[in-house]
Nucleic acid binder design. Structure first.
Length: 701
DNA sequence: GACCTGCTGCGGAGTG
């Protein structure tokens, strides 16, 4: 299939199971047999580290066939890049951002440069689905084919995730039905799960000073991990960089106080490359056991060798990500995958929160484990418009071609291209807006060109990435860079912090160089990092949670405390009558409990806000202030009886819709369509209301 | 109330 290069293929298999070899044996064979004409294969990866890993492996394979392999990303020197440009053949391993710059700077010679192109391999395909960066890559592949005037065989490599239809749709949008799927039959691997419930104090009263007393549950979790994980290699996922720092520091100090060598290493996106590589090396070597406390940085396919177990503290962001994390354990033949999970729950008190009464975190964890064992994963939305990336691609094709007519550009990017959701009218509005902003202009013949401001934007190296990043301070100890902190989180001279799992005091802060100098210290405080808005829970997860609470199913993978907590949550569910009631009076507020995901909850809240209510999405429930159940019920009945709300109209009532890099350049109408396409689910909200109203009527009869 | 990713061309100094 791959050998003759005739069609598009997705190869789905677990990490390090030889996906790369499965794709590259036939590709290298094809390139070797066609050695007379210069032939080329492109490999695109989301990570520089992965390109370096693959280069080491492929170069060895290809050397005997005399096929050159060229790595190309920001850390690669000029010599390798210019020798590829002189003789463009073999395998080019590249990131989407470097590919963007290649198209932008070598646009006029691209047809010559890629004349021999036969294959495009996209690694870690699932990492691109539903993101701005993924839309950018899709546009780049489309632009390459347009320049060459022929289809190139696309090969997607992915972990065995559930949503293969979404992956096919992404890889070849026009004819996704013809994409071949090769799923490895590893056989069902044994999975061992234990979820431990951990009791914490009740909700702490709000205090003027921000110093919170240490959580007894976290102290207990650290002590339990110290006993259980030492002597083997494991990955611990506590869901935030702040928690990574807390547990790394605590576990390292436990090792020191017991007089044993440290086995616990931190890993997250704000740590320097040097520190991260130290942790990766500790995991890779087999002499001494090592456990990494990490964020999703260790979720993708960087080679770290097999680990014994995965530890999850609190529910994971999604079922798909839990599956990806588990794929790191039990990689040796005959060994099971092991998940140890902790769920921190507060003691119930008179002012306990609704989510504590239902043990939301623990029940969500149980729901996600059940969905995982049922082989369900969140599907990836391919309906998002990604208007920000459309702006980037307009500027990039203008820089690549020098100038284009509006009609040509429409056909290239929208029409049957990657932004087919954008109407001609909206596209013209966008071009006008970019004209008003003096980013582009039209000459006398109607040709569109970059204006000085547009040239300035496309000449800056930050243009190549589809996503933004904050300005940051570098944190330096002596002559060693430990990592970085966002500028919006300033640290003052003399303050203490925990960073890279150790304790430091700030010696000096340089505003001009954006450097913070630190020295070792005995005290320390866990720093806050800037976070975006929280994880979006999917409809299916909330529905599973409702079923768990409303039933008496045994949950065998819970420990004793967990069983007690579950019983308590089921008791509260029954006491509140939640199998019948979906509206609850809570003081002078009303709770709406639809058992749907966050997108539906957010949409419902916006619908109520549009008719004058105030409230917030509280997770399991939507909380409406200054209202009664009767009032909210009749308003919801009104909303669902009406002609269905127009999602774009609903979006127009939202204040802050600028979320991605170039959103601020979208004209209002297009910004509304863009927001509705990625943040709203009106049909889902109306469906949820219908289900609850109908059930209620049936019960009355 | 989360996480992550990536980045050019050119001039000039230094070296063989």
């Amino acid at each position: 299939m791959i050998l003759n290069g005739g069609c598009d293929v997705i190869i789905a298999a677990s990490t390090a199971s030889g996906k790369t070899e499965a794709a590259f044996f036939p590709i290298l064979t094809n390139l070797a047999y066609n050695s007379k004409a210069p032939s080329l294969a492109l490999y695109v990866s989301p990570l520089k580290a992965l390109i370096n890993d693959q280069w080491r492996r492929l170069d060895e394979l290809a050397e005997r066939l005399e096929i050159p392999v060229t790595p190309w990303h920001g850390d690669i020197g000029r010599a390798k890049k210019s020798s590829f440009l002189k003789d463009p053949r073999g395998c080019l391993l590249i990131t989407p951002e470097s590919l963007e710059s290649l198209l932008l700077h070598h646009g006029s010679s691209l047809a010559v440069l890629f004349a021999g192109l036969r294959y495009i391999v996209v690694d870690e395909l699932h990492a691109f689905l539903g993101t701005e960066r993924g839309k950018q890559l899709q546009a780049l592949l489309h632009r390459i084919e347009k320049v060459l005037g022929r289809r190139i065989c696309r090969v997607g490599l992915s972990a065995t995730l559930g949503d293969m239809e979404g992956a096919k749709q992404y890889l070849r949008p026009e004819t996704h039905g013809t994409v071949e799927l090769i799923v490895s039959k590893d056989g069902a691997q044994e999975l061992k799960v234990l979820v431990k419930g951990m009791m914490d104090k009740p909700v702490p009263p709000k205090r003027a000073d921000s110093e919170q007393p240490e959580s007894p549950a976290k102290v207990a979790i650290a002590a339990h991990m110290f006993r259980g994980l030492r002597g083997s290699s494991n990955l611990v996922f506590p869901n935030s960089r702040q928690e990574v720092e807390y547990y790394s520091d605590r576990l390292r100090r436990l090792c020191e106080s017991q007089g044993v060598p440290n086995e616990f290493w931190p890993h997250h996106g704000n740590l320097s490359k040097e520190i991260r590589e130290e942790t990766e090396a500790a995991l890779k070597q087999t002499e001494r056991p090592a456990t990494a406390i990490c964020t999703s940085t260790l979720e993708l396919g960087i080679d770290i060798g097999p680990v014994k177990s995965i530890v999850q503290i609190g529910p994971p962001p999604s079922v798909a990500s839990l599956r990806q994390r588990l794929g790191r354990s039990g990689r040796r033949k005959g060994e099971p995958m092991i998940l140890r999970a902790y769920s921190v729950e507060r003691q119930i008190s008179p002012d306990s929160r609704f989510s504590d009464l239902l043990r939301e975190g623990m029940v969500q964890m149980i729901a996600m484990v059940r969905l995982l064992t049922g082989n369900w994963y969140e599907p990836m939305s391919t309906e998002m418009l990604h208007g920000s990336t459309l702006v980037q691609q307009i500027l990039s094709v203008l820089a690549q071609h020098g100038g284009l007519y509006a009609q040509q550009m429409w056909e290239l990017l929208c029409g049957a291209g990657p932004f087919s959701m954008v109407s001609k009218n909206h596209f013209l509005q966008l071009l006008r807006k970019l004209g008003e902003e003096e980013i582009i202009f039209q000459d006398a013949t109607g040709l569109l060109l970059l204006a000085p401001r547009g040239e300035h934007i496309t000449e800056d190296y930050r243009f190549y990435a589809a996503f933004t990043s904050d300005e940051e301070f570098r944190i330096v100890a002596g002559n060693r860079t430990l990592g970085s902190m966002p500028v919006s989180r300033p640290l003052t001279e003399g303050s203490f912090l925990i960073f890279a799992g150790r304790r430091w005091q700030v010696i000096s802060v340089s505003q001009t160089d954006k450097v913070i100098d630190v020295q070792p210290a005995a005290a320390g405080a866990v720093p806050g990092f800037d976070g975006a808005s929280g994880a979006m829970v999917h409809d299916r997860v909330r529905q599973e949670m409702c079923e768990i609470l409303g039933s008496n199913w045994p949950v065998p993978f819970l420990d004793e405390t967990g069983q007690m907590l579950l019983q308590e949550a089921r008791g509260n569910y029954a006491r509140l009558g939640l199998d019948d009631n979906w509206l609850l009076q809570d003081g002078n507020e009303t709770r709406i409990i639809l058992w749907r995901g966050d997108k539906v909850n957010d949409t419902l809240l916006l619908m109520l806000q549009s008719i004058g209510y105030k409230g917030l999405n509280d997770g399991v429930s939507v909380l409406i202030s200054d209202s009664t159940v009767e009032k909210v019920r009749s308003s919801l009945a009104f909303l669902s009886a009406q002609k269905p709300v127009d999602p774009v109209g609903l979006a127009s009532s939202v204040q802050n819709k600028v979320r991605e890099k170039w959103d601020a350049l979208l004209p209002n109408d297009l910004l509304d369509v863009n927001f509705a396409s990625s943040c709203l689910n009106v049909a889902g909200a109306l469906d949820a209301l219908k289900v609850h109203f109908t059930a209620q009527e049936l019960r009355r009869k």
